[in-house]
Design a protein around this nucleic acid. Structure first.
Length: 466
RNA sequence: GGCGCGGUAGCCAAGUGGUAAGGCAGAGGUCUGCAAAACCUUUAUUCGUGAGUUCGAUUCUCACCCGCGCCUCCA
């Protein structure tokens, strides 16, 4: 079956293809840069990375826009507390975001766009909405009148028709006509950053930036819009309301939402003491690719229980794959090719692809790979694995790693050079030959302390860096 | 209350109307000077509970129990 995704809008799994030519136009909600990204954020960004890579693996070009929200209440508050401009304040966390995502091997979207670079576009959009009578003004702030938009609620599958202006919910604080109405433009307040504009001094509301930037770069109808489940309502619902009020066209064809992550089965929160940034985990000694593996291994629509046992399991699983690759690269196999095994390799590759085609079922894709690894190891042990089977096996691993990207170790390679390691190994081989096992073990131990792991095989000693 | 997600072995976690993938951990074994790696055996007669539909349900329906998310800017 072809590539397909679960679409929040229709609540169904649907075959996917881009609307125009071969390019997928995709928008994802990026970070609000007021802090370092935590592993919950990274779960979503990792899902988006897997999505990107798989779309490309299936032959599509990408035009992926990610926003950086660099004006927002928390930013203003924190920047003010540090006596910094919001530009100065957000620059630090924007850089940190770029570093952290690079560390996690997340590909850069084709375009990263900042809200503050698009204030004029937003003002223009708000004016258009006003001209179409989707807005009203109160105390200098501009609000979106949701009762005017008939599809309101179609993404979150809520029925808001029963909500009437002024009913039950007292909203005098914001002078909104309806509790669900949301702000497009916030009137300037003393001590807060603001922009002069045709609709008065102020700053944009949160939702408008995504509608405006998405359509500016990708056109009126996106192929994919993605984010965390928490954004379904109100953020994405409001984006639809804004965008479709502006264009009268569907804003996005596919809405993909990733589930939340829990830590040790608990909601992650600072107060619970189980709040982790990537930097925290690296500081505890976990390699980035281990975190990446754990985040990627659970299908994105399933809640992910992030545990330290899970991290250890991820590290061991990666080792298993790396060991297999090392064996492929270093063992000597009999000439020829085992046709049965070749077929097995093709079957594994097919299953891997079919699993990812099925709404990015990473768990199933991994299962296909590991099953193959066991089969291949078995046939190596028995001598059925031939030299001619190596290329396709390596290609399967490469195909896997083009998506998961965990085989390359990220540790620094300071210390012994390859030649030095080889020399120590030669010394140890001599010692073994002389049955000086104490000396041989000593060399192995010293190398281990230098981060070099030795494995003796029939054909000699192979080694890897820790 | 509304909307939505989930409860599968010690842990993580796939999956299907026909009888339970994979990873990790545990136990035993093979190999090895030792170790590592790898492999083999073993760990769910059972998929939250009850009822129903069916020749047959973990998979469909209903009810219930439990956990979770969203419902004013949190991935």
């Amino acid at each position: 079956m072809a590539l397909r995704f679960y679409n929040t809008l229709t609540q169904q799994v649907e075959p996917f293809a881009p609307l125009h030519d071969n390019t997928v136009r995709m928008y994802t909600c990026g970070p609000t840069v007021y802090n370092y990204v935590h592993i919950g954020n990274l779960r979503t960004f990792t899902f988006q990375d897997i999505l990107r890579r798989w779309l490309r693996a299936r032959g599509y070009q990408l035009d992926h826009v990610m926003n950086i929200t660099d004006v927002e209440d928390k930013i203003i508050r924190n920047a003010s507390a540090e006596h910094k401009s919001i530009a100065e304040y957000t620059e630090k966390y924007t850089q940190a975001f770029l570093e952290d995502t690079a560390t996690l091997r997340l590909e850069r979207p084709e375009r990263l766009v900042k809200a503050t670079d698009h204030i004029t576009d937003m003002v223009e959009a708000i004016q258009k909405l006003a001209a179409r009578e989707y807005t009203y003004t109160s105390d200098g702030s501009v609000y979106y009148r949701i009762s005017k938009f008939h599809g309101y609620g179609k993404l979150s599958h809520n029925d808001f028709s029963g909500i009437r202006a002024g009913a039950r919910v007292d909203v005098d604080e914001y002078d909104k006509a309806n509790a669900r109405d949301f702000v497009l433009w916030k009137a300037a307040k003393n001590g807060e950053p603001s922009w002069d504009s045709a609709i008065g001094p102020g700053r944009p509301g949160w939702h408008i930036e995504c509608s405006v930037m998405a359509m500016k770069y990708l056109g009126e109808t996106l192929d994919i819009h993605a984010g965390g489940v928490d954004l379904i309502f109100p953020h994405h619902e409001n984006e639809i309301a804004q965008s479709e009020a502006l264009t009268s066209k569907p804003f996005a064809r596919f809405w993909l939402h990733s589930e939340f992550l829990n830590v040790e089965a608990q909601k992650m929160s600072k107060s619970a003491g189980n709040f982790y940034t990537l930097r925290d985990l690296l500081g505890m000694g976990y390699a980035p690719e281990v975190v990446r593996y754990l985040l990627a291994s659970v299908p994105y629509r399933k809640k992910l229980n992030f545990t330290f046992d899970g991290l250890k399991a991820a590290a061991t699983a990666i080792d298993r794959l790396r060991n297999f690759k090392l064996r492929l690269e270093t063992d000597r196999f009999p000439e020829g090719a085992n046709q049965k095994l070749e077929e097995r390799t093709q079957a594994a590759a097919r299953q891997f692809g079919e699993s990812l085609d099925d709404d990015l079922n990473t768990a199933e894709a991994l299962a296909a790979l590991f099953e193959y690894v066991r089969d291949a190891n078995t046939s190596m042990d028995s001598g059925e694995f031939r030299a001619g089977n190596v290329p396709s096996a390596l290609e399967l691993l490469n195909e896997f790693d083009r998506i998961f990207d965990v085989l390359r170790p990220s540790g620094d390679h300071a210390g012994l050079t390859d030649a030095q390691v080889e020399q120590h190994i030669a010394e140890r081989a001599q010692a073994k030959k002389n049955r000086e096992f104490a000396r041989a073990d000593q060399i192995r131990k010293q190398l281990l302390e230098a981060g070099i792991i030795l494995e003796d095989t029939k054909e000699g000693t192979r080694w890897k860096r820790k």
